[in-house]
Design a protein around this nucleic acid. Structure first.
Length: 264
DNA sequence: ATAGGCGCCTGTAAGC
DNA sequence: TGCTTACAGGCGCCTA
């Protein structure tokens, strides 16, 4: 399911349900995927933060529950056919739904992310001033990888995934296959702006629910940003700007969509 | 450094 | 209809 907007929408929905409540128990049958969860029992949830695509639940007593939703994870208010973890809190239960089981939980001492190497290596948040045109330009200039691969690299910027990567490139009018070192300073600036704009709009729309309808908000409703997607999943359809058919290609083993006329 | 492939998992849609 | 294949919002690891 989730890229940064879906994770952020999840975070905002969970705050009023969870913050201030004590965790009574955390049930599951997969200690390899959901690690150290016995450490959460009896602790109060003090805050929920987000870093890239990770959710960070601050627990009383100096612990933290780190959650990564993988491709199909999400929280629901009731059980589903693919409930993998049940979080029992005072007065509420949360059901972690994850058909593909690619999501992971870790309970760790607060801020101790040695078990979550990617979290340690994450690049700047997209809305942080550190994710600046100069910064992105420098990162692009240093590599021959396709620019889309650079945007998907969580150590470059945290939270961009396959959908919003394509959309940001479309807005910046840069073709996803372009090599990093051939991106101009001006284009790097447009990419920073494109990433921020698309993420912001997607958060405001409650995230994107694609054709398979697998992404749902915590209350079970869908997100509406898919109606505003310009290129993602639209191969063969006309570009919303110039009408040229959208093309699909593969970069890093993942589909990439672009307008061959608007994006050079 | 980087591309390509596979693995982790399961579900759904498309193609024959 | 039934079977097979491709593909899916993520990420880590291996080989060349």
């Amino acid at each position: 399911m989730p890229e940064l907007p879906e994770v952020e929408v999840t975070r905002r929905a969970l705050i009023p349900l969870v913050v201030g409540r004590r965790v009574q128990a955390l049930h599951h049958r997969d200690p390899a995927r959901y690690r150290g969860t016995e450490l959460a029992a009896g602790r109060r949830v003090e805050a929920i933060r987000r870093r890239g695509k990770f959710l960070l639940f601050a627990l009383s007593g100096g612990f933290e529950l780190v959650v990564h939703l993988g491709m199909s994870g999400g929280f629901r208010l009731g059980p589903t056919a693919h409930t993998r973890v049940v979080l029992e809190l005072e007065g509420v239960a949360l059901y972690y739904h994850d058909p593909r089981r690619l999501g992971r939980f870790w309970v760790v001492p607060a801020g101790d992310y040695r078990e979550v190497p990617l979290l340690l290596r994450l690049g700047p948040e997209p809305f942080d001033p550190a994710f600046s045109p100069d910064y992105l330009f420098a990162r692009l200039r240093a590599t021959r990888r396709p620019v889309k691969a650079v945007l998907l690299d969580q150590t470059v910027v945290a939270g961009v995934g396959n959908i919003y990567g394509d959309e940001a490139l479309f807005r910046a009018r840069v073709r996803p296959t372009r090599r990093g070192h051939r991106v101009t300073r001006r284009e790097a600036g447009a990419l920073v702006e494109g990433v921020r704009a698309v993420l912001e709009e997607a958060i405001a729309a409650g995230g994107s629910t694609l054709r398979d309808r697998s992404y749902r908000r915590v209350d079970g409703t869908i997100g509406y940003f898919q109606v505003q997607l310009s290129v993602y999943g639209r191969a063969g359809e006309p570009c919303p700007v110039c009408g040229t058919p959208i093309r699909r290609t593969v970069i890093q083993g993942r589909s990439a969509h672009y307008c061959p006329r608007c994006q050079r």
